[in-house]
Design a protein around this nucleic acid. Sequence first.
RNA 1: UGGGCGAUCGUUCAAUGGUAGGACAAUGCCCUUUGGAGGCAUUUAUCCAGGUUCGAAUCCUGGUCGCCCAGCCA
Length: 568
Amino acid sequence: MTTSNTESQEVRASSNFLRDIIAEDVRTKKFGDAVIQTRFPPEPNGYLHIGHAKAIVLDFGLADEFGGKTNLRFDDTNPEKEETEYVESIQADVRWLGFEWEKLRYASDYFGQLYEWALALIKAGKAYVDDLTAEEIRQYRGTLTEPGRDSPYRNRAIEENLDLFTRMKAGEFPDGSRVLRAKIDMASPNLNLRDPVMYRILHAAHHRTGDAWCIYPMYDFAHGQSDSIERVTHSMCTLEFADHQPLYRWYIEQLGIFPSVQIEFDRLNLTYTLLSKRKLLQLVEEGHVRGWDDPRMPTLSGIRRRGFTPEAIRAFVASVGATRTNGIVDIEMLEHFQRDDLNRRAARAMAVLRPLKLVIDNYPEGQEETVAVLNNPEDLSEGTRLVPFSRELWIEQDDFRETPPPKYYRLSPGREVRLRNAYFVTAQSVVRDAAGNVVEVHCTYDPKSRGGNSPDGRKVKSTIHWVSKAHALSAEVRLYEKLFSKPDPGDVEEGKTFLDNLNPNSLEVVSEAKLEPSLGSAQPGERFQFERVGYFCVDPDSTPGKLVFNRTLALKDSWAKIEKKAGG
RNA sequence: UGGGCGAUCGUUCAAUGGUAGGACAAUGCCCUUUGGAGGCAUUUAUCCAGGUUCGAAUCCUGGUCGCCCAGCCA
């Protein structure tokens, strides 16, 4: 899956219990000569998010490590929630992450087989049609501490069950009027074994099978058998399904089919991030974000648009690993892997987000020149480019202080700094607007410092970036902060909701950023490091005349830390 | 209060009866034509109580704490 080249850059996958189990099963030939087979089984009822990336990397990555195969299987047993739109976005997201499935399957491919198996269970006296209402079934189920009671329909004759179930399938009964149940144990301490529902009546159009069916299997009656049909050896899922494992095994054993084994691992949780489909849907529907692919969303389509890379996500997930303990990973960890990846690969460019005019008084009026600039100091093979320089420049407002605080090394009156790749300049005076704000800084330059070094060996403490005013391109730049202001967005006081934890400053639009002209040819999806500012990528909203950039992540800002500490 | 699962630096993952280690974060220093990157250093952990053992994070017993389960969702 990965070349040896990128592999050395990705985090060495440390051992984890899933890998250990598979390695042991291979060693003992638990599945004979069968290849390791896994599957990634999303329900197509929403967009994939960073949490799914963990499952994808585990399912595909582990199979690949052992020379096995992975299927993409849509768990589409509930027609009321599922849509083709999601089927498509999920495939795109899996591919984007860098994985290709062996077979594309749907649980709905197996509806016929599942129905036959249900019939077999009825004939074996292991399943029955129940006429109780949903509410009655709930009451008969008992509670966590009290056993359930048998349904009055539990001991129906096999012939009657067969007749009723056949007629359920034929559409003779309305939704909710009857269900097919497995006859297991109403007193089991595991509620999943208290005669679980196998089939329910749903007169709903299915995104693939249309009106062919009006009874649909429950997750439990579909998942294990689907695994078995596909000869899945290791069926990895998240911890909350652990209680379902006895039922998973029960169906497989009763049916005498290929013994797929379920193994559970912990879900991924991130600070400042919500991964609940329901809540993400609410953010989209109520317009708190601009859509499923809003760059602030934790969806794969969102973080892709934001500029995150599949390489970084894979490395992150590998580093986080898999265990059976549920925790919460610092979002900084994800950000670290993303910066690490982009630092090595992103082309550099100069861009000024909040422009302040800098005039070089002793630079000849009308003169211009070009300076050679490294495209990526981390990768010299990326070469250089020419950037125009002239008498009037844009610099960052943050890079000038009329009265510099302690430890501030950037431009201030009388202080000399380096213009990146160009000249040393010394600030001389300022021009103010009516309100007294500095709107222009005048400086002088040292012509002998071309390229950024003075022949007399004189040092400057700071280097700032710039864009030639006459050559600058304007662009819209969207700056993102965390979507939520609390590490745990679900932590809410009485009477409040997670929406109250939304960060009101999660999006800031800079409409007139100034860019060096080489950026004019940037295409949507292209990623850059704007030197000293952060990592940015071109948003698909860009048009030929107007570029739009998303800030993927800011660069680490140690000055901000110093300033914050000094300011209390 | 039934059942299942779990507990190691602030966070995360290792250590599979034999020196508790890595990454993130934090702090300090060095270096730097990005206050980026890089380098060096430092701080902090085996839930508790017993037991087995020459030796326990690891095995056993008992506690404690946390998560999951009472959909005709997945």
